[in-house]
Simulated assay, not measured.
Amino acid sequence: MLKSLRRTALVAVGLLATGLAVAPPSVADPAPAADCGVTDLMVRSSAYWVDHDTDQAANTWSNALFHVGNLAQVRTTGVSNHKTWPWTEANGWLLPLDPAHPFAADPQASGEAYLDVWFFHQEDRVLDPLRANLAAEAASVARGDTRYWTTPDALDMSLPSFTRLGVMDADPALLDAARTLFRDARRRLFDDVTGLWRGNAQANGFAMSGLAKAVLALPADSPDRAEYARTLRRSAETMRWLQRPDGFFDAELLFGGKESSSTALVTHALAAGINAGVLDEDTYLPVVRRGWTALTTSALRDSGRFGYVQARGSHRPAGADDSAAFAVGAFLSAGQQVAALTPGC
């Protein structure tokens, strides 16, 4: 029964990732069984954020990743707060580009949110700006410009948009560009010996999460999928040994105190890898369960506030009151994958 539930959930996740599913905008997925604690916590977290955050209007990478998680929550629970479509509409479905750096990775995080919205509103205007930006970048990459992904974070900000749109539009130029950018970033930023990306736990979490999203988006027989999965497995091998006994990851990998955004990102990546069939369930499901337990019993308060979030690029230890949009989104995305591994969801 569990395997059947998991296959059903995975098909839904895969269709969303590739953009191939079609549903009327007003139709939400059926709500899961009422006794699924995973979904209850997801709804509580998203509801708190939309009721209390004071910077929800900005078209930023952090808000974009919240909305990616927010729609993961909607697709998983059937409960909508009706916030993501108005946010994308107010943006005009544009990327917040810096004219001096038109192919920077961070603005392309908004593209992932637009791809999720497109599932409900399949209109050209939703994806046209993203298509234009990625096509121009792919042309630049084809000319030999490959240094656009300067940090491991880019794998979560940019790789999902390239792979999902490449699959949806059957556009080999986008998939070729993603592969080239990934290989260039991996060569500069990844250590095969340690299995770690350059940076702290958050940077490693971003990279793993982006790779997992790419694996979900690509067909099972895709060579690119196999390549991304190999690096995801190498990262997973190391990160499972760095998990603290309480289920968290330390902000600086071996010190710095518990940090929830990296824990959510890694938990999402590992759960998605299991659901996609590229990570061994017996090995990694215990890691996922410890991570989810840490997130839901310590980082998430009864009110729904999600704390212990280290600001991106900061080395200041995170406190119980520290939160951020991208971290809430990572928690919700992790919940979507954990739900697919949880009986009753």
Score class of each variant (00 low, 15 high):
191 D>Q: 01
273 G>D: 09
149 W>G: 00
54 T>Y: 09
111 G>Y: 02
11 V>F: 12
149 W>A: 01
104 A>N: 11
193 V>N: 13
223 P>Y: 04
339 A>K: 07
301 R>E: 15
156 D>A: 09
127 L>R: 05
288 V>H: 06
156 D>K: 11
92 G>Y: 02
207 A>D: 10
218 L>R: 02
141 V>S: 05
198 R>A: 12
109 A>W: 01
20 L>I: 02
124 D>S: 15
322 D>S: 11
180 T>N: 04
182 F>L: 00
127 L>K: 02
124 D>F: 08
128 D>H: 07
170 A>P: 02
34 A>V: 15
256 G>I: 11
41 L>Q: 15
100 A>R: 12
66 F>N: 10
62 S>F: 03
211 L>I: 08
338 V>H: 09
150 T>M: 11
300 L>M: 13
324 A>P: 05
305 R>V: 13
32 P>A: 00
151 T>L: 14
323 S>P: 03
288 V>T: 05
20 L>T: 04
86 P>F: 00
127 L>Y: 07
96 P>I: 10
154 A>Y: 03
193 V>K: 11
91 N>F: 07
263 T>M: 02
319 G>P: 06
50 V>L: 11
137 E>S: 03
208 M>S: 13
296 T>I: 08
174 L>Q: 00
97 L>F: 08
70 N>E: 15
8 T>G: 13
133 N>F: 00
338 V>K: 10
43 V>Q: 11
340 A>P: 11
111 G>N: 06
259 E>P: 01
207 A>G: 06
90 A>C: 00
173 A>L: 07
239 M>S: 03
284 Y>V: 09
200 N>T: 12
299 A>V: 14
196 L>D: 07
287 V>A: 13
284 Y>W: 13
243 Q>C: 11
207 A>V: 04
167 V>W: 00
